[in-house]
């Protein structure tokens, strides 16, 4: 065993790649249904939307793109399905040029199942270039920034936009983004208006977002694929998040074992070299 551990130091990287690949692939093909226990952050996010009365309006701003879609798209789908099943109306906006195809995809894919109507229950606002300055405008001059939807149709005639001239006219704000979007939202929408805000973020960003949840500025966080799985579990609608969690768990388990073995190997080799030195 000791000899084996010593040899691990020279193991070919490609063997590790194959082990990691298989540990992720096998549970995807044959799910083992590991138990899920949703985090408090996810439960709070779910509860914030679940407690909204039918007909209330949610403003969801996103920057989901191909690079972040593996984590953010399942979140977007889970929130969309939950809102539509509850009769909550959603106004979608985006700060990234790659997002509109994802938004139209979500809205079109679930229209038949939940029987919602574009313009009445859901609307997609067009992409606006400018990053943070767009979010500043949303916070200060919502009506001036958007007068048409992404297809160029006037918002004035749409039922979902009736009575909305300001961001404060919506009931909840959701931000689903991979980088700085949550900061822009807390700076220019949540802080000035005090609107209840949920953030969906990539797992990498979670440690940066949590302080805003602890301080009460965000009412909930959906973190990475795990957060999406939590949300799907709570909403009772299994999807891409849930199906990926077995692979996440098993992959992490294998990674932890490899890290432990690597450290033991390094420790043994260091001890050997010290003994030789003496």
């Amino acid at each position: 065993m000791t000899q084996f551990l010593r040899k691990l130091d020279d193991i070919d990287d490609r063997i590790i790649h194959v082990i990691i690949g298989l540990s992720v692939l096998l549970p995807l093909i044959r799910p083992i249904q590991l138990p899920l226990s949703p985090s408090d952050m996810s439960m709070d996010a779910f509860e914030a939307i679940n407690s909204m009365p039918p007909g209330s309006r949610m403003f969801l701003i996103t920057e989901v793109e191909p690079t972040t879609a593996a984590e953010l798209f399942p979140q977007l789908v889970a929130v969309h399905r939950h809102a539509m099943s509850k009769g909550v109306r959603v106004i979608y906006a985006c700060t990234s040029p790659g997002s509109p195809p994802f938004l139209t995809g979500v809205v079109n894919d679930w229209q038949e199942k939940y029987s919602y109507e574009y313009g009445k229950d859901v609307v997609i606002l067009p992409f606006r270039a400018g990053g943070e300055s767009v979010v500043v405008q949303i916070g200060q001059n919502f009506g001036g920034l958007y007068d048409q939807d992404y297809r160029g149709d006037s918002l004035a005639g749409m039922e979902i936009m009736q009575g909305i001239s300001d961001i404060e006219d919506v009931d909840l704000v959701v931000s689903i983004g991979g980088a700085e979007l949550y900061r822009w939202v807390v700076r220019h929408i949540q802080a000035p208006t005090g609107l209840p805000t949920i953030v969906g973020c990539t797992a990498v960003m979670t440690t940066f977002v949590v302080p805003f949840y602890s301080s009460g500025q965000f009412v909930g966080i959906i973190s990475g694929l795990g957060g999406a799985a939590d949300y799907e579990y709570l909403a009772g609608v299994p999807g891409a998040g849930t199906s990926g969690m077995d692979a996440q768990s098993l992959g992490h388990m294998v990674l932890l074992i490899l890290v432990a073995l690597g450290n033991i190997s390094a420790f043994l080799l260091k001890r050997d070299s010290n003994n030789k030195g003496n």
């Binding site: 990691i20 690949g21 992720v24 692939l25 995807l28 879609a69 593996a70 984590e71 990539t202 797992a203 990498v204 960003m205 979670t206 440690t207 973190s223 990475g224 694929l225 795990g226 990926g244 692979a247 996440q248 992959g251 992490h252 990674l255």
Partner: peptide
């Protein structure tokens, strides 16, 4: 959480 994010990308591709 970065490792978790990278796993999510791998899962997405697989």
């Amino acid at each position: 959480t970065t490792v978790m994010g990278r796993y999510s990308l791998l899962i997405g591709r697989l």
